[in-house]
Each structure stands twice: as structure tokens, then as C-alpha cells.
Design a protein around this nucleic acid. Sequence first.
DNA 1: ACGTTTGGCCCAAACGTTTGCGCAACACAA
DNA 2: TTGTGTTGCGCAAACGTTTGGGCCAAACGT
Lengths: 338, 338
Amino acid sequence: MAQPKAHQVTLRSIADQLGLHVSTVSRVLNGRTGDGVRAASGDTAARIRRLAEELGYQPDPHGSGLRTGRSRLVGVLVPRLSDLVLAMIYEGIDEAAGELGLTTITANSRDDEQTRRLRTRMMLARRVDGLIFGDASLDSGFLDELAADGGKFVLVNRRAGDHPSVTADDVTGGRLAAEHLHGLGHVDVAVIAGEPYASTGTDRTAGFVGYYRDRGLAAPLVLHSPFDTAGGRAAAEKLLSRPDRPTAIFAVNDFAAIGAMGAARDHGLTVGTDLSIMGYNDTPLAAELPIPLTSVTVPTREMGRRALMSLTRLLAGEAVESERLAPTLVARASTARP
Amino acid sequence: MAQPKAHQVTLRSIADQLGLHVSTVSRVLNGRTGDGVRAASGDTAARIRRLAEELGYQPDPHGSGLRTGRSRLVGVLVPRLSDLVLAMIYEGIDEAAGELGLTTITANSRDDEQTRRLRTRMMLARRVDGLIFGDASLDSGFLDELAADGGKFVLVNRRAGDHPSVTADDVTGGRLAAEHLHGLGHVDVAVIAGEPYASTGTDRTAGFVGYYRDRGLAAPLVLHSPFDTAGGRAAAEKLLSRPDRPTAIFAVNDFAAIGAMGAARDHGLTVGTDLSIMGYNDTPLAAELPIPLTSVTVPTREMGRRALMSLTRLLAGEAVESERLAPTLVARASTARP
DNA sequence: ACGTTTGGCCCAAACGTTTGCGCAACACAA
DNA sequence: TTGTGTTGCGCAAACGTTTGGGCCAAACGT
């Protein structure tokens, strides 16, 4: 766009104007700034750089992509970008990518296997250099296939199989939650566990349940549900209708927790005093809610950044290890003594 | 990625296998499916198509981009993707783009002029065919420049100058809000108006204030603030500390409204009974809050879709008109008679 | 003075597409 | 037979870049 194709600034146009050959210009501008020897004389190099700057030269990715076989494009697949957590992770990814001169393209898989495959195909068709999956499913058939085909990717937020991943330590996070509620004196507790195919939900639940079990306490009630507000509301609805209603609910996700707060109110319960509810992720919203929500902070943006770094290492041919980031608990008014 | 470069499926590899020329294969596969005459014999065409399918041929965008000068890439600039409203708009854009075989790349401008310019530059360097701005500022100097340089773009969500845009009818939306609150009997009302550079905030405020003014009522208090929860909370804090505290608050954004709810609670006020609060955008959250939030629905995803459609028309050389989508009000428990 | 190195640059090929042009073969009419 | 069209393809050039291999001249070693 911009210029009607008339005067695109190209290596050639620069070379011609300077009476040099296009390859010289290319070498200077690609400047393996390290050695500096092989490029050109200090003088010509300077002239080239000045003119390039002046004309606002920007290498054409089609040209270089065609030649090098690399696109400097990274594909990012997420369940949905309108999930705040994923949006923040993506922001981290994109930020880090920008700093390295990479561009990201993203797509929603809606946690649907077919969409996942389709969108991945589209990204490969775009010739992405590598992929980041934020929507890994625990039965990772698709990822196994992709890896077997030589696909380069890392996972973020959710782990699966032993594909390299950057996640929070969700088991520990769940344990922290249990420790907090148990410390307040809650023994009848329940977990709104999210979708069973997501490691985030299952790991947090496992950590939570493990804590209670290790102490010989009654096993917490576990209920699966979608990760969103409506899902949390429905699950809490069920929990609160039971005769042996729990005194505290741990939702593995802030939005589910907010839904649970709604259900609590419908049951005439005041969150914090009649019923403790806590979430996970420490969404910016959590602190600002009418009743501030106890939650577990995970460094979302940092997770995204690291995932991208991992991917670049992978693309450079290095071996990469999975990373687990440490969560921390932040207590607020939504949880209190029973 | 994927194949180690060894056996990429290319027009040539298909042509060779079939003993045809690459141009023939190209013509068949690009099939101007309409005329059908000029391509090849029905038989060869079928053979080509079958083999391409079988090998999983995907045209290389670098090659075609280089040749055609088009990238089938659309750049989308937003204030921040972690703003749910923008995320949903972006989903609409990307969905529509996908259906047309276009790919979107996105970036956050954080409503910062310099970042905006920088990120736009990066997108142009990527040779996007066109741009969609979701972060237009009312003083549209940057956009004017870009348009003067022949840049192809449309605006979404926020309008500016008379650049083509797809937005909701925010003035009407503000009016609906005023009508609702006034209908309930509120005369001392206030507006948390968002940032003054965003048409969304100013238009909604103008519609709201206009309604009260047209009826000769006292002019609503107007307070600007950031669009997020913390901003809304701070603004509400100020409003509620006044001796002539309003009985109803219209926040031009659900998140600001949620912040306001928090402030209300700090003041010992029960939202709905002691103080009416309403938001805007009808975020999925609004309905699920402990105290469900009255809000104005705008067809976010649809807005995104239409913006992309507009852009494609623009790119096809057609003239495009701005569009205004109709908002509707949905009343919930957070607003009631004073 | 003569061989050898090295600095500085150019040459040319290749990456995968698209597309205007042209050509052979055939059909048909006159 | 010649002329006129049509169908079915191939040819070749171009898009902008990168990169291995030159080649010429100057600098250096002996």
C-alpha cells in the first residue's frame, strides 16, 4: 500500500543511486555488525546507511522470505483472545516478538480440535517459522503429530505431554489456595475445576485436593465447568444447592469465581462472611470488584515473553527445557473465617 | 518449518510430476472459477487439482506476494488487546478475514502516539494490504498524514475526522442511557466519561448530556477518567465524596462501572437501591456480576466483521461509507428508582 | 621485483509466483 | 486450398532478496 508501487524503496533503487551493486547494499544493511570486515569500506557503508535511512528503506519480507525460507512470523494459537488471561499472555508474546523483529499472527481455536487443526494449517500456509500454543489439550494427539512432522513449537499456559512449555506451577498454586482456606479454618471446601482437558484446571485442582488429602481431611468436592463466568455460576449453583454446602469455594479461574459470587448472592449469601470464594490468575478486575477477590497471581505477561524466548531458542536449534513460573497468593475480602 | 526444506510442495514440483508447465498449474489452481475457459482442458485441470490436493499444496505467500505486490495481510491496531471490548472486535475482524483468506496481524498502541506510529511503521514494513485502527484519537493528525500518503485504512469502534469508520451509534447509546435513568426518576446524575480523546466516550457523554439538557434539566456532572476499573473507581470516589452526590452514575464503559460499584461499596452504598450505576458495552461479565449491571449492548463482533468488509471494499477501489450500528439498552438490577 | 594476501566490490543464480504473449494443433467456413 | 477462430498449453520475464564465488587493485612479505 502507501506508494502506488511507483517508487518503492528497494535495494536496487539505493544501489543505483549510489552507483553500487545491490549485493553490496544488501551486505551492508544486513550488517553482521559483529565482524564488520566483509561488508564494505567504512565510507561506502556510511553512504549506504545514510541513504537507506533517508529514503526510509524497509526490506521487503516477500523478497527475503523467498530467498531465506524464513518469514520471521510466529503463529500463536489460543482458545480465545477474549479470555483476558490469554490476551495478556499474548501481549507478552507480542511484546517480546516485537523486540526481536518478529511478527506474530494469532487465531482462536475455541478449544475445538477441528478448528485447532484448521487454524494451524493456515499458519503453516503462511509459512510461520514457529508456533506457540496456548490451547494445548491434555490428550495431545494433535501436538504429537505436529512434532513428528518436524513442527517447531512451544506451549504456553497449559502443558501437555512432554512438549516444551512455559507455564505457571499450577500444582503449587492450587496448594497455596488450599493452605489459605484451610488456614482460615475451612474444612468443607469445593473446587470449581474448569475443563478436564486443560492442565491449568487439573493441576490447580490436584494441588488443592492434594493438600487436603495429605492432611487426612475430607476430600474437597470437585466440579468441572467451563472457564467463564456463566460456567462458574452454574457450578456454584449446584454446590450451594446441596444440603452439605461447602463453606468455601476455590474456582480455578477468576471469571468462574465471579460467576460463583453471583450464585452466592442469589442464595442470599454474602461473600466473605457467609461464604468464602477465591479465584485464580489475579485478573486486574479481581482487586477492583465490589467485594475484592482473593486470588493467585501468576505472571501472565512474563509467561508470554518467556514462551517466545523459548521458541526462538528452539528455532535456533538449541534444546529447550520447560519452565514453571512461581505463583503467589493474594488474600482479599472474599475469603474469611467460616 | 515442517519439512526440512527438502520436499516443499511447489508449483514446479507439481508441474514436473505431471509433465506440465508451472504456468499451467498456476492458472488452474488460481482458477478464476468463473469463466473456466482459459485455464486448461477439463482433464488436465482435474489431474492438477487432484495432485495438488494429494500433496497438500499451499501456495507460498512469499512468492505470490513478491509477484503481485499484495500480501493478503491486514494490520489491526488497538489500544490494548487485553481490553475485552477490543479483543471481541478483533475476533470479529479476524473471523471475517479468515473467511476471505486474509490474515491479520495486530499490535497494541496503548493510546500512545509514538507507539502508534512505530507499530504502524512495522505493519507497513510487513507490507500489509490495509489497516484497521481501533485506537483512533479525535485529533487525528496521524491518520490525516497516513491518508495523505495513500495509506488504506478504516477505523473501528472510534471515529475520527471523516475517515471511513465502523462504529456504534454512541450518541444514541448515551441518549438511551439518559432516557433509562431519567425514566426511573433520576435527576441528579453523573457521567464517568472516559478519555477525552476517544469518540466513544465523548459521543456517549454528549448523547447523555444532550438528553437532560433538551428537557431543561440540570446538566449532569461529567468526569473524565481512564477506561479501566481503577479509573472508574477513582472517578466514582470523587463523585460520591461530594455533598451533592448524584443518585445515578452512567459510566461509558462496563469496567469503569465495575470500579464505580467498588467505590459505592466503600461508601456503604448498596448498588441498585442506594445508588444506580450503569455501564456500556454489555460485556459478558455485566450480566453475571453479583449485582447484574445495566448496560448498553453494542454488536462488538459484528462491528469488527463490518470493519474488515469495509476495508476489503476500500482495497478493491470502491468508495466506502462510514457505518453506525444501533445500540440497545438492557436493564438489570444495578439501576432502580432513587 | 615478484609472489601472496586481503580489502572492496560485482556477478549471477536462486527462492516460488503470476501473467502477457505466442505458438502449435485442430475445427470450420468459404 | 487458404483464411479465420479457438483451444490448450509453454515461454520467459519479473517481483526483491541473499549469498557463494569470483575479479581487480592495493598492500604486504621476502
